[in-house]
Design a protein around this nucleic acid. Structure first.
Lengths: 340, 340
DNA sequence: AACTATTATGGGAACGGTTCCATGGATAGA
DNA sequence: TCTATCCATGGAACCGTTCCCATAATAGTT
């Protein structure tokens, strides 16, 4: 018994079956139906149905120079924030008949460069970027090729691209106001090293300004979260130090919140006694008693906005439109970790 | 000032620049370098470098019928299990020079069908599927087109495809043994409705068998987790019921564990007093005091194994190899939620 | 020396669509 | 009735590769 590997049906076979030319079939499938007579339309529809025809995207991508593909470069695919945004991106793509190519780069600039070039070779129609490296050169190349770009949060370049993300300054202000309201006066800011990642920088800077403006005491600890002991020590020192006012931790993102919560538990300090607030809302924040106060990011909206920007720019003929910034507001979700 | 949209350089331009034929350049870039003389190789390398050439994947995909793309169909992209597996899949792809197209289907069979057809139109070389619907027909079509398939966990069809996933029976046994060891005798199994999803069925069945075999008392609650009250009530009833032995909950997946934890907290029942064990290890399980006992799935390994299966099958000429099943063992992580 | 392998290279026909341009018939205007 | 316009349709070139051949040059065999 031989299993016949059935080849995909092509436009030519449909044309034959429908007694039409492949031009007509092509028209039928690329949004020019109204140009065909009703009779022709039904014939083609029937033939395509019978043969199970579906246009080959590789072929049309090659010819038209567009692939109906959107690329997404993610620095860390396991970061819940990235996932949540990706969900929004995927939804927006689907609604527009676009597909999504996802590349994870594990925070490695070399891989980012490699993937950018790779994505370009698939003739993607737009690119959503969440990267750590400085990719000015590579991004410039993409822009020249006419590929619209959206930078998620991390506005790292001079390149003509939209930036979509959180209003970091307002978010930090919100956190500081909340902590001050609740009576915390000595703060420790926890973050991964800002490096070139602009939102980390923006948050850090605003924290330092904000603390000064409010006459609070503020320290910062910006180290990789990979070794828990470092963080543990920093927090222990912070807590042990004699002070005049209740103390609180402000975590710059979800990873920091997770690490800080672990460290506080290891230290045995009850939440609220030492205040804790973090940017990024996570499933479990309400479960760790007495609940962890967070600043939620509207992640799905951010993802959708990214795709919208891409499409707008593509339709606008790529040029003339100045690049814009879209900033979303964080939402404060107060819980027990900032109640003494 | 006009901005010149620089066209991508083609193989022909490189050939001209290197004073070679496009055939030679093509050979250079598709793994046939050794067939070229050293001199030719350096000339082509230099020319390509100078022009920033990169082969157009659309063109090569069209010609060769292969795209270097792997598709992944995910029922719920926000499920941590899916993400963790996707991480493994992505890694394995990258190591092999493949790229990943991700489609989220929001647990909707209609979208699953649509996306399958779409993926096929991109000439993907393999497909990793995590779906809810019964897609036998569509999958059969793909198999006939010579596209290797791997079903993640949910073995839903008669189709010739590998299945990669957890050894569900052993996992449930592990959980039951652990609960029995710790002295829990009356169990409530929590799951989303099994529907057609085979791992849910497998786990449920094994639970029922296992409870009987061990002379334990076991009930099941298989309802959607969307309305918390339903679950809340079920758990309250379970706890309130007079019994002769300590009670425990067994959660079939991460979502169930999350919902159960919320419900228990709302009910005010301390963990451990009422036992709690769940399949899927999550970030926060150690943080919710006194820690939630879990059965961790080796998600990254599952993802990598999926890609390996795809590649093996592709090289084996698609046929003759009988489809296999790869089962991974769960790892018990005991914590306070199963200590009285 | 004559003939066959072997190797390095190039020419050109696909791959499956899209799209410009041509064609012929129908309709309208004069 | 004759020409201008419009519409539905088809022919064929082209997108950037790959790959089957053909060719020329070199090496190997008797």
């Amino acid at each position: 018994m031989t299993i016949t590997t059935h080849q995909r049906t092509t436009i030519l076979e449909v044309a034959r079956e429908a007694k039409a030319s492949k031009t007509s079939v092509s028209r039928y499938f690329s949004g020019e139906r109204e140009r065909l007579s009703p009779c022709m339309q039904t014939r083609i529809a029937a033939a395509a149905q019978r043969l199970g025809y579906r246009p080959n995207r590789m072929a049309s991508g090659l010819k038209r120079g567009r692939s109906k593909l959107i690329g997404m470069l993610v620095a860390d695919i396991r970061n819940p924030f990235s996932i949540a945004v990706m969900y929004g991106v995927e939804q927006a793509c689907r609604e527009r008949g676009l597909s999504l190519m996802v590349c994870n780069t594990d925070n490695d600039p070399a891989q980012e460069r490699e993937h950018l070039s790779l994505l370009a070779s698939y003739q993607i129609e737009g690119l959503v970027i969440n990267a750590v490296g400085s990719l000015d050169q590579e991004l410039q190349t993409l822009v020249q090729q006419g590929i619209p770009l959206v930078l998620l949060e991390r506005e790292l370049s001079e390149v003509e691209a939209e930036v979509v993300g959180l209003d970091n300054a307002r978010a930090i202000d919100l956190a500081l106001d909340h902590l001050q309201d609740r009576g915390y006066g000595e703060l420790l800011y926890l973050s991964e090293p800002p490096g070139l990642a602009s939102p980390r920088q923006a948050r850090l800077t605003r924290f330092q300004q904000g603390v000064a403006a409010r006459n609070l005491t503020g320290e910062t600890h910006c180290q990789p979260l990979s070794e828990p002991e470092t963080l543990q020590n920093a927090i222990s020192n912070f807590i042990a130090r004699p002070g005049t006012s209740p103390k609180a931790l402000l975590c710059a993102n979800g990873n920091a919140t997770l690490a800080a919560t672990r460290a506080l538990q290891a230290h045995g300090a009850p939440l609220g006694d030492i205040g804790l607030i973090g940017i990024d809302e996570l499933d479990w924040c309400e479960l760790v008693s007495p609940g962890i106060t967070t600043l939620a990011q509207p992640t799905e909206a951010i993802g959708r906005a990214a795709v919208e920007c891409l499409m707008r720019r593509r339709e606008a003929g790529d040029r003339t439109t100045p690049s814009r910034q879209v900033h979303f507001q964080a939402i404060l979700i107060p819980r027990g970790s900032t109640r003494r």
